[in-house]
Design a protein around this nucleic acid. Sequence first.
DNA 1: ACTATCATTAACAACGTTGTTACCGCTGTA
DNA 2: TACAGCGGTAACAACGTTGTTAATGATAGT
Lengths: 321, 321
Amino acid sequence: MINIKDIAKLAGVSYSTVSKALNGSSLVKPATKSKILEIAEKYGYQKNLLATQLVSGRSRLVGFVVDNVRNPIFAHMANDLHLELQNHDYHMLLAISPDGVELLNQLRVEGIIIWGDLIHSDPDFLKRFHDLNVPGFILGTDEVLRIPHILIDRKACIHEAVRYLIAHGHRKIGFVGGSQEIKVNAFREAISEMGLETSEDWLIPADSTWEGGYRVIRDYAFHKESPTAFIGLNNLITKGVLRALLERGFSVPADISLVGYDNLPELKNAEVPLTTVGPSLEEMVSKSVSLLQTLIERPGNALPVVLKPALVERASVGPRR
Amino acid sequence: MINIKDIAKLAGVSYSTVSKALNGSSLVKPATKSKILEIAEKYGYQKNLLATQLVSGRSRLVGFVVDNVRNPIFAHMANDLHLELQNHDYHMLLAISPDGVELLNQLRVEGIIIWGDLIHSDPDFLKRFHDLNVPGFILGTDEVLRIPHILIDRKACIHEAVRYLIAHGHRKIGFVGGSQEIKVNAFREAISEMGLETSEDWLIPADSTWEGGYRVIRDYAFHKESPTAFIGLNNLITKGVLRALLERGFSVPADISLVGYDNLPELKNAEVPLTTVGPSLEEMVSKSVSLLQTLIERPGNALPVVLKPALVERASVGPRR
DNA sequence: ACTATCATTAACAACGTTGTTACCGCTGTA
DNA sequence: TACAGCGGTAACAACGTTGTTAATGATAGT
């Protein structure tokens, strides 16, 4: 692969001149510049970002670390973040692993966005990240941290879902999923705050996967005291729940209502278009990019960001039967 | 951020000694080594991969370039490739954009895997990639190229699907989707080769999205001469088709059979578990990694790879009604 | 003609590593 | 006593850039 020294030789100038020409400096004579540019083009010169970055310290590179790109919500975020960062003249590199944090840091990206779930991948993940001392933040946490983050008010989201179901006349509400304490607790709290009936049977633990949601509802012992509405912990569980409900002959929402967590557009294509709560994805993306920019350009000036609930009404919630 | 020179000062040795110690060289006295290691640990030393790579030329970094991570098939591949590369001691960086090729090359990754669809993003994408002269290949192409690639025998896959439907007694077979010439042509060819009835109505163009498949079938004019089975061009279309079919009151597979292209495991969770054709994803991943390894370690020795069809039987195909 | 000015280019240090070579002081051997 | 051998460490060049400073030659002002 050709480098500026090779080009310099070819053009009969010094390599520093080549560097300037390639960067469009006005310090080099137009004729020389175009000659250099021509040679660079001809030989397919590709600058070595490593060297550039090493000396200049800038790369316009941003890392996004997730631990599984197969969850559609991750994939969605990755795609939209990429687009938005591109608008801001940043390139996004995606790493699929908690170790991506160290990797991207070693690559000296200018900033790192970390998908909140990673916090749980390793008890001292936060410390690891904090010690790196690199501009970046956790996208999607439940609690206030000592490092920059975007807080999703999941508690408020769940409350919103409960409120919405109540407004539709529901009194017996179930919750499917168990992995995220905050959501489960928020659910419990909302139920008791709003003075609803409750039963431990209505809090149904499930793996955070399609199968998780599907199985528990497929096997659930329905009777006349069972919930008339469910809330699903995330998009996967919710889709599994919906399937199981339909398979068991319930009509949604005529017999049973369902609201899912995660505002994923494609949930409109579920068997029954799903009504969902969760932060607005657009807001997550735009807030992420501006927070990152602040972090990079004026470190120390990063304000905490909180994402409020958004509810998108589709067709999976109806009046209590 | 601390570097080896800082550590050297702290430890009272030369920076080259620090470098050796950090790399576990046996040329440095155990006592010195542990002292250095301790300091490095204490100050959270993180090597600068840029510098390392610049001088040593090695990074154990591999790039994967896609143009949209939201298609579940991409996401699946990205995830599995990541895992498999990790087993081979490579880190994978994902870039979501045709320009990712140049970007990753400028970062001097050791190899690049390019998702085949990108070929169509730009008429001279292949030339761009070829001129880079970096170890890498196109994953998933229809035709033999002059650059390394893994060829998916899509034609054979479609033939396989048709054969399978015939074996179940179907004579009138439809095809939904229009964007990939090769599949459409393969379908036409298979139909005529196997002496089946045909009608232009049975070849139903559709966007390569869920909505694409859904809409065309929702609006399709069914009558007694309509297909008794459909093939969907990809996983998204197929799911859309299935939904439309069910909504229109057809039973799948009792009334109409359906086979989808793309061997995506989660298609077992469709309303009717979908029977699919396509290359085996596991094979795609393992062949990708070994091809990449060959390309990196013994450039010039790369053999062309062809992926044969695999059919996974689930529940969306039954005997002709 | 003599210098100040300017445009253009060259030279060189730096960025943070690695790898090679050179050096130093010690031990053991002749 | 001289010196080969060796463990340990230091010195230094190199990787491909950028940015700063120095050098060069031409032009213009006096």
